[in-house]
Computed example of a mutant assay.
Amino acid sequence: MVYIIKTNNVTKCFQGKEVVSNINMNVKKGEIYGFLGPNGSGKTTLMKMLTNLIKPTAGEIEIFGQPLTPSSSYDVLGRIGSMIEYPIFYEKFTAKENLELHCEYMGYHNKKAINEVLEMVHLINIENKPVENFSLGMKQRLGIARAIITRPELLILDEPINGLDPIGIREIRNLFKLLCKEYDITMLISSHILAEIEQMADTIGVINKGKLIEEVSMEEMREKNTEYMELVTSNLTRACFILENRLHLRNFKIIDQKIIRIFEQSVSQLEISKTMILNDIEIESMSKKITSLEEYFMGLMDKEKQDQVR
């Protein structure tokens, strides 16, 4: 297994307080790694260490199989595209002029790449428009364009779909999948939009209060997840009674005033529906579902809280 990023007990302290604690992250070549965590959990701090913007207090970082050090960082960073926090541009310049400057700085001289990459992020008809007149979503697109223009081997993107509308989110999601599959670009992407990460990530890492509490492939996560039937009814109390006393089910959970999740597989959906109807319980809907990444993530957060209380 080839790892593009490996960290060994990476720790960062600010003013004597640990904000990242003993992180051991493993990002495989050719995958999209979704980096998840609440605000202030340490995602951006770790990404800044990976791009050498700040130095770790302790621990080691390996990128492309070699330690990230002051002497090696120049070569390593030339193979990385990144967008950390809010992208900054020369506001009076156009998108094309900003990209030309970036290419000059990076020593990348493919003139055709600028128009190609602007088309890839769907920034069109903006030739004479200064960046100061761009919307937040347009600036995000330009930030992504700048990160990918040199065809890097590794992309590190911090909340790249912030400010995008639903159409824009779908376009960028498809772009990331294309870059990973067709261009063999490894990606580390942080996001608070869990449904998007679920659709494109191969592996997820979950960080909370500076500690990496989970690193798991999406395939493993889906195997761990539980199928259940979700019953929506306005007669919640009576429906629970029927489940327990008529159908002899015990493994179900009340989610809110109208929703029950049934985790037992011993009784079919048809049998449950039939029994409810025969007992004059109106069913608004009933469907088979599987635990989502959002529910998995929230479960991890709840477990962390319970562990801290003990």
Rank of each mutant, 00 (worst) to 15 (best):
E271D: 12
L247P: 08
A195Y: 11
I277T: 05
I213D: 10
K181I: 10
S268H: 04
K177D: 11
K209A: 07
E227K: 15
N251H: 13
I277A: 11
F263T: 02
N245W: 00
L175Y: 12
R173W: 07
I204G: 03
D202S: 11
I204V: 09
K209D: 07
N251P: 10
L243I: 05
Q265H: 14
I277K: 06
L179V: 05
E244C: 14
C180R: 07
K177T: 05
L236F: 09
K258W: 13
K274A: 11
L164Q: 09
A201T: 05
C240E: 15
E264K: 00
G210A: 10
L175M: 01
L270T: 15
M276K: 10
E271Y: 04
F252A: 11
L212A: 03
L194N: 02
C240G: 15
L175V: 04
M221G: 01
N251Y: 05
K224T: 01
I272Y: 02
Q257N: 15
L243G: 01
I255P: 00
R173L: 03
G168V: 00
V267E: 02
L164N: 09
T233R: 04
H248Q: 14
L178D: 15
T233K: 02
Q269F: 03
E220M: 07
E171A: 01
N174M: 05
F176T: 05
D256K: 06
S234M: 09
E230S: 09
